[in-house]
Design a protein around this nucleic acid. Structure first.
Lengths: 204, 204
DNA sequence: GTCTATAGTTTGATAGAC
DNA sequence: GTCTATCAAACTATAGAC
């Protein structure tokens, strides 16, 4: 009587509940701040009492961990969706803009992905693998542009990440550092002596 | 009988206690993380009970606020202490190295100064003024080097800050991004067409 | 003025009924 | 799987000893 169909339905329902809880956690984090998230707050949003969450996550950190993995999966999907232009400098600009826009769109998500904000929280190996997957894709994209040295990859990450952090710290919601992004990328491309774009529309 | 001398002694003692509490708070933050700091933890370090701290600070946030001001005062003292070389690129490297080393030396201090880690904490106007003082000094130093445009100042802050954040996030305690600092500064100096250093010791 | 004692509230987590 | 009940720890605030 309890065949595969029942088990399947149950596990689907269980997964759906997990996703509901995660969505509630993101909403709560956006409202109160990532570190200020409380289990009662999350539970209330899904119509539960706080202890019930422990049927789906072993601890508060386990929720943070699932959020961490989900955020990197989201970014991986964004990166996968877009084809890059063949011209190296244009492609480089797009890589930078893509990461910048994603990081600037959601503060708690950015904090969880790129800043160690929660004391004692370290992503599990399983969740960290999602971040590694994105970095592997980044490595491949940069190789296609013509950049392969580890130090060059690190410098680009630091450059774009620095603009993101400065944007959040000094002008949240504004464009003070967003405006500098293309210029920063060009500066980097010049230093690496990447081929210049054909200046078709220069000085008309 | 209660003359100026008594008042002076009392206020000195009071200020000393304040400083003891702040020192204990820094130590606790370094041990447990900035956001995980508890008043009991701080009080225990100075041989008090938690409520006694309220005689010296009106709230936990007031302690964070005093720490924020103290951190920027510290940096201002570091910046004031050093004379900069006259050669622009060398000076620029020193400005970057000074900030980088300071930020990488102490995680909770860096988080408090440059990252919004504590939910609901915003520095008071009085404390924020300390950060502004440092930025004004930065502006003057950069002007002496020959850099005055706001966008140029912002880009340099983002560049060096990005290396700091990447160092903390991806290689805490290491030198993976510290090694890229001079190269990053040169890249920036090239983009701004700062005069080249005399290549006295090039290709010996 | 400074500290202790203490009370009230919030939060993460566990136990056990159903 | 969800609930109620409950605990330990932590922040805030107040009353009162000295």
């Amino acid at each position: 009587m309890l065949g595969e169909a029942t088990v399947d339905w149950q596990s689907k329902r269980r997964e759906a509940t997990r996703q509901e809880i995660l969505a509630a956690a993101w909403a709560a984090a956006r409202e109160s701040g990532l570190a200020a998230l409380t289990l009662r707050q999350v539970a209330a949003r899904v119509g539960m009492r706080a202890p019930s969450l422990y049927s789906h996550f072993t601890s508060k950190h386990a929720i943070y961990d699932a959020m961490f993995a989900q955020a990197w999966q989201e970014y991986d999907a964004v990166a996968e969706a877009h084809e890059l232009p063949s011209e190296p400098r244009t492609a480089l600009r797009e890589v930078a803009r893509r990461f910048f826009d994603f990081a600037v769109a959601d503060l708690p998500r950015h904090q969880l992905m790129n800043v160690r904000t929660i004391p004692d929280f370290t992503p599990s190996a399983r969740s960290y693998a999602e971040a590694v997957r994105v970095f592997d894709r980044y490595r491949a994209v940069m190789a296609a542009i013509g950049i392969t040295a580890d130090e060059d990859l690190d410098l680009f990450v630091a450059l774009v990440g620095g603009l993101v952090d400065a944007q959040w710290a000094n002008d949240p919601g504004g464009t003070r550092y967003a405006r500098l992004l293309d210029r920063a990328v060009d500066m980097y491309a010049d230093a690496l002596q990447l081929p210049q774009v054909h200046a078709d529309q220069e000085e008309p």
